[in-house]
């Protein structure tokens, strides 16, 4: 009798708890989530320290000859990048001058607003594409900021705690990106999570492109700047193939420029 009563109590408790938790206001729910997630902070810290230790140990194992060759290569690359940056600065000045003459608003650059971050965890479920980075509100991060690598767009920031931030990756249904193809017609499209490959994280779909024959495999896509999250011109990916959807618009499959499956470090674009 007592045994049966215990079962009923457990069942009732689980049911009530589920109903209460699912009906909590979003603010209270996210605060409770943060409190529960803080149980894992020691493990995240331990994993971060272990990763740093392994990195440093591997540096110690690199032969001096290889390290010097790498330094020379980086110096050469640095020189080339300095020259490219000078050229870019000249072009930017010219652009700003012309904008002033036309009474256009100055275009804000984003290169100086990037904050590096390390990936410390990934989504434990199969239904979404998110990851966690090791910087949070303490470092100036807030929700809906662009996240990228030197290769291209990665996603946008989601829930932010003091020391960690959830990044919603491109391809997740919650991360819509307006893009345009870099061809003569600058066809615009939209990346949503509806046509992504479940197993291959690097392939996503672009919808609502105009029906024309100018979108070809190999063409690159960049962010269009529409919407309030992503600035214009961040590389997104390359067109793999296209098909016309019900005679209404063109759909394209693209390979993302940033290797989302193998990310280690990212940049968060602060405001």
């Amino acid at each position: 009798m007592f045994y049966k009563r215990a079962q009923y109590i457990a069942l009732a408790f689980a049911a009530v708890l589920t109903v209460v938790l699912l009906n909590l206001p979003p603010g209270a729910s996210s605060r409770l989530k943060l409190a529960l997630g803080s149980v894992f902070l020691p493990l995240f810290g331990l994993a971060g320290s272990a990763s740093t230790f392994v990195d440093r140990a591997s540096w110690a194992l690199i032969p001096k000859k290889v390290a010097i060759a790498e330094i020379h290569r980086l110096q050469r690359e640095n020189d080339q990048l300095k020259l490219a940056a000078q050229e870019g600065a000249d072009a930017l000045q010219e652009n700003q001058r012309l904008r002033q003459q036309l009474n256009w608003l100055p275009r804000s650059g984003w290169a100086g607003r990037l904050k590096p971050a390390r990936i410390v965890g990934r989504d434990p479920t199969i239904w979404w594409r998110t990851c966690t980075i090791d910087i949070g509100s303490r470092h100036g991060v807030r929700p809906k900021l662009p996240v990228l690598t030197t290769d291209g767009l990665v996603g946008q920031t989601g829930q932010v705690t003091e020391t960690q931030t959830q990044v919603i990756l491109v391809g997740d249904p919650a991360c819509g990106v307006s893009v345009h193809v870099q061809n003569e017609t600058k066809d615009q499209g939209f990346i949503s999570g509806s046509q992504v490959s479940v197993l291959d994280q690097s392939v996503v779909g672009v919808s609502f492109l105009q029906i024309n024959r100018r979108i070809l495999a190999g063409q690159t896509l960049v962010t269009s700047g529409l919407g309030s999250v992503f600035p214009r011109g961040i590389p997104v990916g390359t067109v793999l193939d296209t098909q016309i959807h019900d005679g209404l618009f063109t759909q394209a499959r693209i390979r993302l420029a940033a290797d989302i499956g193998r990310l280690q470090e990212v940049w968060v674009m602060l405001q």
Binding site: A14, K33, L36
Partner: peptide
């Protein structure tokens, strides 16, 4: 279930049932 939901974008309580 609560631990799993805390680390995923799912609403808290989704994994309990």
């Amino acid at each position: 279930a609560l631990w799993l939901d805390a680390l995923s974008p799912a609403r808290l309580g989704t994994s309990i049932p």
